[in-house]
Computed example of a mutant assay.
Amino acid sequence: MTPELTVLALAILLQAVQFVAYAIGANRELGPGYTMSARDSEPSRSMSPATARLGRAFGNHFEGLILFTGAVVLVTLSGQATGFTAACAWIYLAARVVYVPAYAFGWRPWRSYIWIVGFLATVAMVISTLI
Rank of each mutant, 00 (worst) to 15 (best):
G118Y: 04
P43C: 08
A95H: 05
A89D: 07
L14V: 04
L14G: 06
T69K: 03
S44I: 09
N60D: 04
R45H: 13
L120D: 00
F119A: 12
G59W: 02
L8S: 04
W110T: 12
A102S: 13
A23C: 10
M36L: 14
I131N: 05
V100E: 00
R111C: 09
V117W: 05
Q15D: 03
G83I: 01
N60G: 10
I91E: 03
A89G: 07
V73K: 00
R39K: 15
H61E: 08
P101L: 04
R111S: 07
S37N: 11
F119D: 02
V7K: 00
L65I: 03
T35M: 15
I116H: 08
L67P: 00
W110M: 14
A81W: 03
A102C: 10
R56D: 02
R96F: 01
A9C: 08
S128W: 01
F58L: 13
L74H: 02
R108F: 05
E63D: 11
Q80P: 07
L67Q: 00
L54A: 11
Q15R: 11
V100L: 12
T35E: 04
A16Y: 13
I127N: 07
S41V: 15
V75Q: 04
W107P: 10
A38L: 14
I12S: 08
A95V: 09
I114H: 09
R108G: 10
R96E: 01
F58H: 15
G33F: 04
L65Y: 09
W107V: 12
I24F: 13
T122K: 03
I24V: 15
G55Q: 01
S128A: 15
L14W: 08
T85D: 07
S48R: 06
M47C: 08
H61Q: 15
I91S: 12
A52R: 12
F84G: 07
T51H: 05
V98W: 12
A57G: 10
P101K: 08
G59P: 00
C88M: 15
G33R: 08
S128F: 02
V123S: 00
L10Q: 03
G59M: 11
V20A: 15
V97L: 14
F84S: 06
Y34V: 07
M1D: 05
A26C: 03
L120T: 02
A81M: 07
P101I: 02
T51D: 09
I114C: 10
Q15L: 13
A26I: 05
S44L: 09
G79T: 02
I114S: 07
F19M: 15
S78T: 14
L30D: 11
E4I: 01
R56T: 08
V7R: 00
G31I: 11
A38D: 13
I114E: 05
A124W: 04
N27I: 02
G79F: 05
I66A: 14
E29H: 05
N60Q: 05
R28H: 13
L54E: 06
A23E: 07
M47N: 06
A11E: 02
L10F: 06
A38E: 14
V117C: 01
E29A: 08
R96Y: 03
S48F: 06
F105P: 04
A11S: 13
Q80K: 15
T51N: 12
M47W: 08
G31Q: 13
F68L: 09
A11I: 01
A57W: 06
A86T: 14
F84I: 09
R56I: 01
T76Y: 06
I91R: 06
L93M: 04
L5S: 09
G70D: 03
